[in-house]
Simulated assay, not measured.
Amino acid sequence: MRLLNIESSPRGSRSASIAVTSAFIEAYRQACPWVIVDTLNVWEEMLPDFDQEAIGAKYKGVSKEPMDRAESAIWDKIQELAVRFQQADRIVLGVPMWNFAYPYKLKQLIDLASQRNMLFTYDGIEYGPLLKTPRAFVVYARGGTYEEDSPTPASRFDHQKRYIDFWLKFIGVKEVHTLVVDGTTWGGKKKGEEKVALGREEARKLAADF
């Protein structure tokens, strides 16, 4: 059993999303002691920019054309990242909300790893998933709250959960389990700590059936 743990917050021990996903993984290790956890922190992974060389490598890789040295190095990294997804039996992902969406480094990982014939297929008409990952668990951490009757209703302001849930299913995750931990900063430090503590407790419960 191999679990890919994706950390997308740069805040380390101060991160709400990492605190909750860590609690989940600790509990999951107890339920599944043979699990191998592969942690991918997008801020420490030295992800290559998705620049001219990366785009050139992408199109040459799909069409199997020769690459120059810079393109080959980036393509090797792209394939390495894709393999980590391909090998995962489970995926755990912590996502803090940035500007009502998600950190740009997480999008960088998605843009690099999500390549045709690696994580998905496209025959010119339809897309298809390539992963066969049974489950993913995603923690969505938000500083504020987004009830529909609030000044920031989720239907208008939440551009975090919908895309990440869609992407995971697009690449082939069968079930996406989610936990939203909100109000981590807007209500003050004490209230935020209480929200994170509740999130950690709920995460431990959810780990039992993962």
Rank of each mutant, 00 (worst) to 15 (best):
F24N: 01
P134Q: 13
Q108G: 10
R156H: 06
Q30C: 05
M97D: 06
A82F: 02
R29N: 03
S22K: 14
S13A: 14
A27K: 02
F24S: 02
L131E: 04
R162L: 06
G199I: 03
S8M: 14
G172F: 06
L109D: 07
G12F: 11
V173M: 00
F50L: 15
E44S: 14
H159I: 05
A203N: 04
F137S: 01
L206G: 03
L131R: 01
V83K: 15
K191Y: 11
S22Q: 15
L106Y: 11
A57S: 08
F210L: 07
W43Y: 15
K132H: 13
M97V: 10
G188K: 09
D111F: 06
R200Q: 15
D38H: 10
M97I: 10
D149T: 11
L206Y: 04
S72Q: 13
E80T: 14
G144A: 08
R116W: 08
Y59F: 15
Q30K: 15
G199Q: 01
S72W: 01
G124H: 11
S9N: 14
I6N: 02
A197S: 12
T184A: 12
N41L: 10
W186D: 13
E126S: 14
A70Y: 00
D158T: 01
D89I: 08
I74H: 01
M1A: 15
K174H: 12
V83I: 14
D38E: 15
E71K: 02
V95P: 07
R156F: 02
V138R: 01
Y140N: 04
D68K: 03
E193M: 11
K191G: 01
S15Y: 11
R204Q: 14
F120A: 09
K174C: 08
H177N: 09
R162F: 03
G61Q: 11
R200N: 05
G183F: 02
R14Q: 14
S150E: 00
D149F: 02
V35R: 07
F157H: 08
R204H: 05
D123C: 07
E194K: 12
G144K: 03
V95K: 06
I110P: 04
T121A: 12
D38G: 09
Y59S: 06
M67F: 05
I164H: 00
W43P: 12
S63D: 13
F85S: 10
G183W: 04
P66Q: 03
A19Y: 04
Y146W: 04
E71I: 00
F210W: 08
K132P: 05
L106D: 11
V196E: 07
N5A: 12
E147T: 10
S8P: 13
L130T: 07
E53R: 06
R11N: 15
